[in-house]
Design a protein around this nucleic acid. Structure first.
Length: 271
DNA sequence: TGTCCATGATCAA
DNA sequence: TGATCCTGGACAT
């Protein structure tokens, strides 16, 4: 679920559902009792995402609620209130006609402005945000001996990219994931960035990751429709032991930066 | 019903 | 590098 596009979607959903009116806030599970009580009955002013981090702000409160979903966290909306609590709901927001339940987050905490600044200072530019500066990432990449596939996953280099986007953007540009950052040239980085902006922005718009170009859709390739289970089409992510969608070569897999990496050795040759 | 694995990240060693 | 946080879906039994 949660790469950067998910958090931007959720920010929009929080704004559309709750912004401008007082909300009821609680922690049925009990692990966010104090924070939930602090914002109970306050007016939710704005939710905003930076990379995979989500911040929720309230009127006349300097602190913000910081959420990070981690690997399995979920924030689900139901257009009804009240509804029974099921499972471990860390934080519940409600108004007269809607409920939002947060489960399994890595982070759900009240942060003061200084802590928020400190957290944001650790993040690289977010391709989904209009204020992002790709040169900040380039300054890190151009001098790094790390593989580009590791750099893309480093949230202090680029914020919001996860395991699917890293695999897919490298495939789309035909880049060997093991190429070191310093071996890339500025134009290649710019092409990578521009593609991340396009892929991630589209994912925000449509609500799922879909990276396959029209000419490579199964129908266009004369193949039966494929269902990946992510709600969209992708080239190489989780296609180990399967044929590359474009050339048919078996997709390679390896662990890199602690995560499963997927690439096509034919379309993304070493150099 | 049990086991494994996952679109994330931190911490100890 | 591995354990851990913590949830749920896919699959095996």
């Amino acid at each position: 679920m949660p790469e950067g596009h998910t958090l931007h979607r959720l920010a929009g959903e929080l704004n559309g559902t709750f912004a401008g009116l007082p909300i009821r806030s609680s922690s049925p599970q009990g692990r966010f009792q104090a924070g939930a009580a602090t914002v109970d009955t306050l007016v939710l002013t704005e939710a905003e995402a930076f990379g995979k981090h989500l911040f929720v702000r309230f009127a006349d409160l300097p602190e913000e609620i910081h959420l990070h979903l981690g690997l399995y966290g979920r924030l689900t909306f139901t257009p009804v209130a009240p509804i029974p609590v099921t499972g471990a709901v860390r934080w519940r927001l409600e108004n007269a006609g809607a409920t939002a339940d947060l489960r399994g987050p890595t982070a759900c905490e009240l942060l003061d402005p200084q802590a928020v600044d400190h957290l944001l200072a650790r993040l690289g530019p977010d391709p989904i945000r209009a204020d992002a500066d790709p040169d900040r990432a380039w300054e890190r990449i151009r001098v790094s001996r790390s593989p580009i596939a590791a750099l893309l996953m480093d949230q202090s280099v680029v914020a919001g990219v996860g395991n699917i986007f890293r695999a897919e953007v490298l495939f789309r540009l035909g880049i060997d994931p093991y190429r070191r950052g310093k071996s890339l040239d500025a134009d290649t980085w710019r092409a990578l960035w521009d593609d991340l902006v396009e892929l991630m922005s589209r994912a925000v718009a449509v609500g799922h990751i879909d990276t396959v170009r029209p000419e490579h859709e199964p129908e266009a390739m004369g193949r039966p429709p494929r269902v990946d289970g992510h709600g969209g089409e992708i080239y190489v992510y989780r296609r180990a032991l399967m044929g590359c969608l474009v050339c048919g070569t078996e997709v390679s897999t390896a662990t890199l930066a602690g995560r499963n990496l997927f690439w096509c050795p034919q379309c993304q040759p070493r150099r």
